[in-house]
Design a protein around this nucleic acid. Structure first.
Length: 827
RNA sequence: GGGGAAGUGGCGGAAUGGCAGACGCAGCCGCCUCAAAAGCGGCCGAGGCAACUCAUGUGGGUUCGACUCCCACCUUCCCCACCA
């Protein structure tokens, strides 16, 4: 290791303290404490192999924040674990013949070492890995509780299927409608799948967003849009020649008299009934049309394809006018949203208009702009609200009134009522994959679907399974699948699907509270002690799914009484920005990945931590540059050199008392110390974490100390400032802080010290620069006492030649005085 | 198509109604040195000899005063997207 004269030996210092912190379990969080609790949580990582400085940003922000809270007197819980189930392990098995369990364990070992190398302050006694039976047995336990509550159920559903790889794909693995591995077009297949009934919680998930004032606004908006509540009405069209009707959902009931066709999804259940009443030619056309769509993914059916349809030959009856309405099967109506059927109103809907034009269906205008006459031949749909025409007795009503009046009429006739629809769909948790939690269900020919009793948990995932990347791996393991029915003891088959890994990440934060409990996933007592999470930090890519699923689970737990207090898990939420390298995304293929190990070796992790916190506000995208980090290396070396003269001095017990200032330089130095401390505390308590400004204040402080160093070790003010440095930098550069603290003669850790409390006497200024403006333009700057009065300030201002020149004998119309800051004279 | 965020020197950024550009990077000059590195000191938005003027994406507005608030537009990034 080479290091220059005037620089310090970061490598041995960082290694020394990391070992000692671990040996002394310095960051263990006791369950019982006099101190107020603070639950600091960073999203648990997937053990993908290696950390780079981009990952480090996330952990550094969380760690600096947790260290600040600890030094501010809180009992901080700062845990870490591994989101250890998932596809990359399985893919590694398929491509390099590696056992997923071994691959995962090796990665965890390496990444745990790297997280320690970052100087993080986690309580490792609470570590969890979701792939261990001690953890996933509680996944199964929670699944069974959801099952008992009717919130877990099985039904047939369309999924993404890659015909090349012969396997189901997760939504995230479908890129632009193609398989991420072989780029084959993905098809839709109907398979029997497990779902969680998150839609039961849609209203609460939506309404409680209002209570999440500590979340970024954009995250709340995205969740609101994802839930996608829309208010409207559901009503029935009768069908000529059938007893059954077709339900339709609409938000635009005011356009009901503009209906010229009924559009239904090809998968709609009524299609079978229609085929029985229409001519053989029409029935064949419907079959042909449905077949042409069947294998297409939703993406193809939506974005890529032009709207298509086929007339069924059947007619519906308009619920009010009783007119005959042709029924079409179409490509653009989604079976999974609303009722799978839509009233076609081409005059007032873009999609219906496009469809009607293609198939020459009539366009009937029933809403016009408030003060306009109707267009006889519209060239584009009018989609705004307006005034009704040609709508029987509802004509001349406003859209808003008409919606209410028509809904009331439909309800009176028993043909419909107001209703609410959500975009949110039930959460599909089945995966035809190996490396996940087995779903604890058994199928018995006699008893049917039987839940595995709690006493038989965990249902262990068999190890050493041959993985070929085709089909459902567990289905091919007889020792796993073949079992006895828990009810009747007869032969039965286990469910071979595993759970979506979002299942475990929806509740893992509760397991940290009670990681060794073997009777329950966590105890209500521990939850009461620690929940809710005070600050959650993680990537914005989890804005919708992970956070929504976690909120859903937590509300379920709350309903059960397993957690109390607020029914939201995460009080404050923060999304960190990405890290680029020289303006480009880090990736192995570009060869521009900056690793943790190389950085620790080259510059030390204290410098890395400072750089990541300093280069941008934490929520912004930052750019890693070698020049940038050298600036932070310089700062650390300057801190070291400022402290060196004090290493041999005897321990000064009074060093933390504010010394008296002899002169302006002393006052400036004391002020710089306390301004830095105030900044660190403000950024923490505000949950803003703009430590870039705090570190800039540390730069200013070190600049002042360097200038003052001529005053030497015998100046009590310089001594005070220097001795404050380890405390001030401890949350950001924890190793150098600890080393300096020790060299100053302390025998306990700096990280157990209280943070420096800003002192009003040190922060006070004895003179300020008062800006004098004439008509809003700066004309003079006066150095005055901070408490100077308006009259006196005005008198001072008039003494300035430049001010007098601009007043030039004109009449003073108005004066604005901001004490200690500004005087504006308006003439 | 819908929604969200953001536009400030060569670069990252600071300032959230009151001195625009803190702090750092890069650059330039000097000191130290036989020399270099490191370190230390200084300069560093544009124009002007200067007093000054101009300048925070563009155009309006509110205000004594706007990077900051309001309206419109332009650009960039992100998310969702035939959601009836």
């Amino acid at each position: 290791m080479l290091f220059m004269a005037g620089s310090y030996d970061f490598a041995s210092i960082e290694h020394k303290w990391q070992s000692r912190w671990e040996r002394e379990s310095l960051y263990r969080a006791p369950n019982e404490s006099e101190r107020r609790k603070y639950y600091a949580l960073v999203m648990l990582p997937y053990p993908s192999g290696d950390l780079h400085v981009g990952h480090a940003k996330n952990y550094t922000i969380g760690d600096a924040m947790a260290r600040m809270r600890r030094m501010l007197g809180y009992n901080v819980l700062n845990p870490m674990g591994w989101d250890a189930f998932g596809l990359p392990a399985e893919n590694a098995a398929i491509s390099h013949d590696a056992d997923p369990a071994v691959w995962t364990t090796e990665n965890i070992l390496n990444m745990r070492r790297q997280l320690r190398l970052l100087g993080t302050s986690y309580d490792w006694s609470r570590e969890i890995a979701t792939c261990e039976p001690e953890f996933y047995r509680w996944n199964q336990w929670l699944f069974l509780r959801l099952y008992e509550a009717g919130l877990a159920y099985k039904r047939e559903a369309p999924v993404n299927w890659c015909p090349q790889d012969q396997t189901v794909l997760a939504n995230e693995q479908v890129v632009d409608g193609r398989c991420w591995r072989c780029e084959h077009l993905v098809e839709r297949r109907n398979l029997s799948q497990w779902f969680l009934r998150i839609t039961d919680y849609a209203d609460r998930l939506l309404d409680d967003l209002a209570t999440l004032t500590g979340w970024p606004e954009r995250t709340r908006v995205m969740q609101r849009n994802w839930i996608g509540r829309s208010e409207g009405a559901t009503f029935a069209f009768g069908i000529e020649g059938l007893d059954a009707g077709v339900d339709v959902f609409t938000t635009r009931l005011d356009t009901l008299f503009g209906v010229t066709f009924l559009a239904i999804a090809a998968e709609h259940p009524v299609v079978n009934s229609l085929q029985r009443i229409v001519s053989p030619e029409h029935a064949a056309q419907i079959d042909e049309f449905a077949a042409s769509l069947q294998s297409k993914s939703e993406l193809e059916r939506t974005s890529l394809m032009e709207k298509r349809g086929s007339f069924t030959g059947a007619y519906a009856i308009h619920p009010l006018s009783r007119e005959r309405i042709p029924i079409w099967v179409t490509s653009y109506v989604l079976a999974e949203y609303g009722t799978g059927a839509v009233m076609g109103v081409p005059a007032h809907d873009e999609r219906d208009f496009e469809f009607a034009r293609k198939y020459a269906l009539p366009v009937v205008t029933v809403v016009v702009p408030p003060n306009a006459l109707p267009d006889e031949m519209p060239h584009e749909p009018y989609v705004e609200d307006g005034r009704l025409i040609a709508s029987e007795e509802f004509s001349e009503m406003s859209s808003e009134r008409a919606r209410e009046a028509i809904a009331a009429r439909l309800e009176a006739l028993g043909r419909g009522k107001t209703s609410v629809n959500y975009k949110l769909r039930d959460w599909l948790i089945s995966r035809q994959r190996y490396w996940g939690t087995p779903i604890p269900i058994v199928y018995c020919s006699g008893c049917g679907e039987v839940p595995v009793p709690d006493g038989e948990l965990p249902v262990l995932l068999p190890l050493g399974v041959l993985l070929r990347g085709e089909g459902s791996p567990l289905a091919g393991v007889p020792e796993f699948v073949e079992t006895a029915c828990p009810k009747c003891g007869g032969p039965a088959r286990r469910e071979s699907d595993t759970m979506d890994t979002f299942f475990e990440s929806s509740w893992y934060y509760l397991r940290y509270l009670d990681p060794h409990n073997d009777r329950l996933p966590w105890s209500a007592e521990r939850a009461a002690q620690w929940m809710n999470v005070d600050q959650y930090i993680g990537g914005a890519e989890h804005t919708v799914l992970h956070l929504l699923y976690s909120r859903f689970f937590y509300k379920f737990f709350h309903d059960r009484g397993w957690v109390r207090g607020a029914n939201e898990p995460f009080k404050n939420l923060f999304h960190q920005g990405l890290v680029l390298h020289d303006g480009e995304k880090m990736s192995k293929s570009r060869g521009n990945v900056v690793g943790i190990d190389e950085t620790a070796e080259k510059t030390g992790v204290d410098a890395m931590r400072l750089f990541l916190l300093y280069v941008t506000p934490p929520e912004e995208t930052s750019d890693w540059t070698n020049e940038g980090i050298s600036g932070r290396v310089r700062l650390l070396n300057r801190i070291w050199r400022a402290c060196e003269p004090f290493f041999e001095a005897e321990r000064d017990g009074g060093a933390r008392e504010l010394p008296p200032a002899e002169n302006a330089a002393d006052r400036a130095l004391l002020r710089a110390v306390h301004v830095a401390a105030k900044s660190a505390i403000d950024e923490t308590l505000s949950h803003r974490f703009h430590y870039n400004t705090t570190i800039a204040k540390l730069d200013e402080l070190v600049n002042l100390i360097t200038v003052s160093s001529g005053a030497g070790a015998d100046s009590p003010v310089v001594a005070y400032a220097v001795r404050s440095l380890p405390i001030l930098v401890a949350p950001f550069a924890p190793h150098i802080a600890e080393e300096l603290w020790e060299r100053f003669g302390h025998t306990t850790s700096v990280h157990l010290e209280p943070y420096l409390q800003p002192d009003a006497r040190a922060l006070a200024v004895d003179e300020v620069t008062l800006v004098v403006q004439v008509n809003g333009k700066v004309r003079a700057r006066l150095v005055v006492a901070p408490d100077v009065g308006e009259e006196q300030a005005f008198a001072f201002a008039l003494a300035e030649a430049n001010v007098r020149g601009h007043l030039d004998g004109k009449e003073v119309r108005k004066r604005i005085y901001v004490p200690g800051k500004l005087l504006n004279i308006v003439v």
